[in-house]
Every structure is written in structure tokens, then in C-alpha cells.
């Protein structure tokens, strides 16, 4: 039975590799790093697959690993700044890519970690709030609050987004 779960995990990873790549890329901003992140994430996921309890948890579990590996790489390359209390990180202005556009996508990439993660998972990867809560190990209400805070910071009206 374990074997079956393992195989499903492998399939899931292979089928969704593009999504993981894009998510990683949105953090690390270049191809080589994004490839490294995905490779590391796959490695970790397969190595620790026994931590995976059941198939239902698979999706959020893998996303969590991808985010962690992205973060790890940024930390390793010192491309992020930790907040004073270590509760979140930010990508400094200079690191956000060659060209800074003042478009929404760029601004999302400049947000602090929690807000950025939530916005991306919600709108780019289309996870449900419940799934996001699992990925980020947060209470779902916290997720909602931060989501709205994030949208507010991006100056997107919450009413508009509620219709999304």
C-alpha cells in the first residue's frame, strides 16, 4: 500500500512540475535557481514521502516543500532580509529582478513573505483557503485576514476580489 502512495506521489510531481517551477521562479527570479529549487523539492519530497499521511494531503504537502526550498535558496544566496523577530522575510528592492515594473505582478513579488505566499497560492496557483492554511500551517482565519490585508496593501478593492 505504501508503494501505491509513493507511485501516486511520483505521478503527481511529474504531472505538476511546471506549476512548481513557476512558483519557484516567482521567488528566485531566474531559471537556474528555479530548476535547482524544483529539483531539491522533488528530492526532499521523495526522500521523506513516509511523512505523507495520505493522498489527500499530497498537494499541500508538496507545495509546502516547494515554498520551503524556494525560501532556503533565497536565504542561502542572501537575497532576503529577515524581519527583526524572524517572523517573516522580505525581498529587498534591488533583488526583485532586472526590471522593476510598477505592475501588480512586480508588487506582489515585493510583499512580505506571508502576504506574498498567500496571494500567490490563491491567485496564481488557485488553491483554496483551506489548502493555503495547510500549506502555510496557519489557521484559516489568519489566512483570510492576511489575504485581505495583502489585497489592501496592493490597493485592490476587497469587494472586487471577493467576486473572484
Amino acid at each position: 500500500m505504501k508503494r501505491e502512495l509513493y507511485d501516486k506521489l511520483v505521478s503527481y510531481i511529474i504531472e505538476n512540475q511546471n506549476k512548481f517551477y513557476r512558483l519557484a521562479y516567482s521567488y528566485v527570479k531566474n531559471q537556474d535557481d528555479a530548476l535547482d529549487v524544483v529539483q531539491n523539492a522533488v528530492c526532499k519530497a521523495l526522500e521523506h514521502y513516509e511523512d505523507l499521511k495520505n493522498e489527500d494531503a499530497m498537494k499541500t504537502w508538496v507545495y509546502k516543500i516547494v515554498l520551503n526550498e524556494s525560501y532556503t535558496l533565497l536565504k542561502t544566496k542572501k537575497r532576503i532580509i529577515l524581519s527583526e523577530d524572524n517572523s517573516y522575510w522580505e525581498i529587498p528592492y534591488e533583488e526583485t529582478g532586472f526590471e522593476i515594473h510598477d505592475d501588480l505582478y512586480s508588487r506582489i513579488n515585493q510583499m512580505e513573505s506571508d502576504l506574498q505566499n498567500i496571494i500567490k497560492l490563491r491567485y496564481f496557483e488557485e488553491l483554496t483557503l483551506g489548502e493555503i492554511a495547510q500549506v502555510l500551517k496557519m489557521n484559516i482565519n489568519t489566512v483570510k485576514t492576511k489575504l485581505y490585508r495583502g489585497l489592501h496593501a496592493l490597493k485592490i478593492s476587497v469587494e472586487q476580489e471577493a467576486g473572484v
Binding site: 517551477y21 513557476r22 521562479y25 516567482s26 505592475d103 500567490k120 496564481f124 485592490i156 476580489e161 467576486g163
Partner: peptide, 17 residues
């Protein structure tokens, strides 16, 4: 909402090597 859709499009257009 349009702006978010555009942002998503930018994201979706990230090329896959």
C-alpha cells in the same frame, strides 16, 4: 480584478525550460 488576471498571466507566461 483585471489587474490580478494580468498578474496571473505574467505568472503563467513564465517559460518552462
Amino acid at each position: 480584478m483585471k489587474r490580478m488576471a494580468e498578474a496571473k498571466e505574467t505568472y503563467d507566461n513564465i517559460p518552462i525550460p
